[in-house]
Simulated assay, not measured.
Amino acid sequence: MTLFTGLAAVAHAQGMSVSSSAFADNALLPAIHAGAGDCGGTNTSPPLEWKNLPQATRSVVIKMTDPDGAKGGGVVHWIAYNIPASVLSLPAGAGDKSGDQITVGKNVSGAAAYRGACPPVGDTPHHYVITVTATDLDPGRLPPGLDAAGLAVALAGHTLNGSTIVARYGR
């Protein structure tokens, strides 16, 4: 019996997942989470929930990219970090700007903000990959103002596990 208990604990540790109450994996992103103006939305970050963080997790990082953007070169729409491991979800809009338990990094335009989906008119719907990463870094350890490259350097050797969810959006 003890053997099975140990196996269940290992499976649980490896079963990190991320979901959203706004869309299912690989489904359409609701327009509210798209860019403002002609993009059809209000630049409101989507609600997210994550489960089964590794036991050593101290903080969580969120990154949203559009690998189809910039003609296949990829676009970073959202970076959020310094989220304590005790926080297991963000409601819609909670990731739009920095606050007590979240630091929002620089998106593709250099702004420390959530940047909603906004593919070119007529393109096949783009894929928006949202990755939640568990880290062994204490909340608040990473400085404000990181972009994707700076965050990657800061996370080197500190990631424990991650999970993704994909949304699609076209106009």
Rank of each mutant, 00 (worst) to 15 (best):
F4H: 11
L7R: 05
A9V: 10
A9T: 11
M16L: 07
S19K: 13
S19I: 08
F23N: 02
A24H: 12
I32D: 13
D38A: 15
G41W: 01
T42Q: 15
N43A: 12
S45Y: 04
P47F: 02
L53W: 06
P54L: 10
Q55N: 12
T57N: 08
V61F: 01
K63W: 00
T65E: 13
P67S: 13
P67H: 13
D68N: 15
K71N: 15
K71A: 15
G72D: 08
G74L: 07
V75C: 01
V76I: 12
I79M: 11
Y81S: 06
N82T: 10
P84V: 02
S86K: 11
V87A: 04
P91Q: 09
G95I: 05
D100Q: 08
Q101L: 09
Q101I: 05
G105N: 03
K106E: 07
N107M: 07
N107Q: 09
A111V: 08
A113M: 14
R115G: 00
A117G: 14
V121Y: 09
T124V: 13
L137W: 10
P143Y: 03
G145Q: 10
D147T: 12
A148P: 05
A148L: 12
A152D: 15
V153Y: 02
A154S: 14
A154P: 07
A156E: 13
G157P: 01
L160G: 02
N161T: 11
G162K: 15
I165G: 11
V166Q: 03
G170Y: 10
